[in-house]
Design a binder for these strands. Structure first.
Lengths: 342, 342
DNA sequence: TTGAAAGCGCTAACAG
DNA sequence: CTGTTAGCGCTTTCAA
């Protein structure tokens, strides 16, 4: 390991000067600076981040804690964060909580030891509590809000997106529209549920609690929830389903298939969050798409601005996009002229 | 930040003893140890990893460098690595190279400053070169081999998997079987191509270079390659396609759709690497599946064993699994008894 | 079994 | 503009 001292020696300056030449070149005379840079280059010097961070009481790194790295939505969030962080010379320490508060706690503990400058977190229900482990650390909550007072958040307009989707189903004539919602102790689920509710109201449809089933965001949860809803007695069974996230949408589609229901003829379905899967399956799924990469990138930019002492908006909402594809259709198939004339 | 000194003070011992009590408890008298642990607990002490690593000239962290975190296969590799590392108390510093050697170089440079104990890397063609930045660092090559002499590798049996897939197509009666292969400067592509070649040979089919098109592992590459192959004159057009990775398989399927070719009637297709997408699309894609999670987990275990001074196998190959679904069918559809009797 | 002291590599005060 | 000095928090001799 080549140290700064080695560089200093070769350049015939003190370590302090070498340090300055490398990190704050304007404080050093031109000639000296060049000697140092030259020496660093020939030796292949790479600063020891650990020593620097120890001295400066903080490393040029950021924590990123997501709840499910296998979920393409989260992978995309992470990419957005990483790209921005890297461009600014920050290292990202990424952790995965699997939606478990205990894992989040451990992630925070580990992170603490690394003295990160800031944290971007997709909260779990215990984030509020766990963040006590990291006092005074600038935090951006991504995708969801933990409910901490004064928290900075970067999210999408969940309520509007959900409203749009459910209104669409209502406009297609569906009167029994079910919802597979996430955990109601998570803000996105609450907001999407709120949009669902408002859309029903505006369409003059009753809100029926028995048509709303919560799940824990995974495929298996969506499958179970859909199964429960779709095996209700015919008179009560929903003719359309709005599903609260991408993983559960997969599960819901599989459940429908298992029950022999064809989309969109026997069941209309709209999912929240787009995916390649939704685009390419047959029929392609109508979705409320989220700008995942932008969310991640924006969260990171916001954090870096915050670190830079700039004032940043408390809360940002990015827009969702409604993408109409083939999984939602009118309740009663258009009767052909002949059939209609009987 | 609570330091070890704070703990020591509270426990009325020297920092040295406090350190020992926490990291090598057997060196400390029972009573003292308990006082220290108690003090650490009440203060919520968390060791400063930076200081510790600086002192010990190495941090309890591992580098993980993958080439495309958005690819679910890589996400799964990463999860396998992370889970094992975390269980052993290691922090994973993850980087993404987007298949770009320059990004890999930067990742290595950044990593170096963090003094990781070891590295797990999915190599790019320049890994051989870039690894000079990290001399003496234990390295496991994951999924692909860089070709470095003496490198430790954890991979799948690409050649066998490819052979199996292509033999299957040949057995179905296909005689013009195309391959969309990866970059031939990457070991997986070479090996899968080798399997393709051997399967043709064993089936008594000629190897036709014009039916083999390379791509850079992304969806767009697969699409372009498939388009090129499928627009050949009818007599030359392949009736079956073997695609070298999951992303390119998506592209190939989309290209076929654009050209109005139906799977498997107009074109048989087998992909390498399974995905949810391949499972749920219509028709479901026949694939050579890889144990991605196990690959990652095994790579990490191997690295940790290596760090622990154990002797580990130079090279490990995990088995692929051939999963027959609906995208590959006999060349000529089974004639019905009637049609066959003319 | 415990403590004193040194030092990992770096940077920030403070002189000069 | 540059060098000297000190110290970030921890672990590890060495000595008691």
């Amino acid at each position: 390991m080549i140290s700064l001292e080695d560089v200093a020696k070769l350049a015939q300056v003190s370590p302090a000067t070498a340090s300055r030449a490398l990190t704050r070149p304007e404080l050093v005379a031109e000639g000296t600076r060049e000697r140092v840079l030259e020496a660093a280059r020939t030796l292949g010097y790479q600063p020891n981040v650990l020593a620097r961070s120890l001295r400066q009481r903080g490393s040029r790194s950021l924590g990123l804690v997501v709840t499910d790295i296998l979920n393409p939505f989260h992978a995309m969030l992470a990419k957005g964060v990483q790209d921005v962080a890297e461009a600014q010379g920050y290292t990202v320490l990424m952790f995965n909580t699997d939606e478990e508060s205990a894992k989040e706690r451990r992630a925070f503990e580990t992170l603490r030891g690394h003295l990160p400058q800031g944290l971007i977190v997709v909260p779990t229900p215990a984030t509020h509590l766990n963040l006590k482990l990291l006092p005074n650390l600038p935090v951006i909550e991504l995708d969801r809000a933990s409910g901490r007072a004064g928290a900075h958040t970067v999210m999408v307009d969940n309520e509007v997106g959900a409203y749009r989707a459910v209104s669409h189903l209502a406009a297609l004539g569906h009167r029994r529209i079910g919802m597979i919602v996430g955990r109601l102790d998570i803000s996105t689920a609450v907001e999407r549920h709120e949009g669902y509710r408002r859309a029903l109201l505006d369409a003059g449809l009753p809100y029926r609690p028995e048509l709303v089933v919560p799940g824990n965001h995974r495929e298996a949860d969506g499958r179970a929830a859909a199964h429960a809803l779709l095996t209700l007695p015919p008179a009560e069974r929903p003719t359309a389903l709005f599903v609260g996230n991408n993983e559960m949408t997969v599960g819901a589609v599989l459940a429908a298939r298992e029950l022999g229901l064809r989309l969109p003829d026997d069941l209309s379905l709209i999912g929240f969050d787009d995916s390649r899967w939704a685009q390419t399956m047959t029929p392609a799924i109508t979705v409320v798409a989220q700008p995942a990469y932008d969310l991640g990138a924006l969260a990171c930019r916001t954090l870096l601005n915050l670190l830079g002492g700039q004032t940043v908006p408390q809360s940002v909402r990015l827009k969702t996009t409604f993408i109409e594809r083939d999984s939602a259709a009118p309740l009663t198939p258009q009767p052909s002229p002949l059939a209609g004339s009987r």
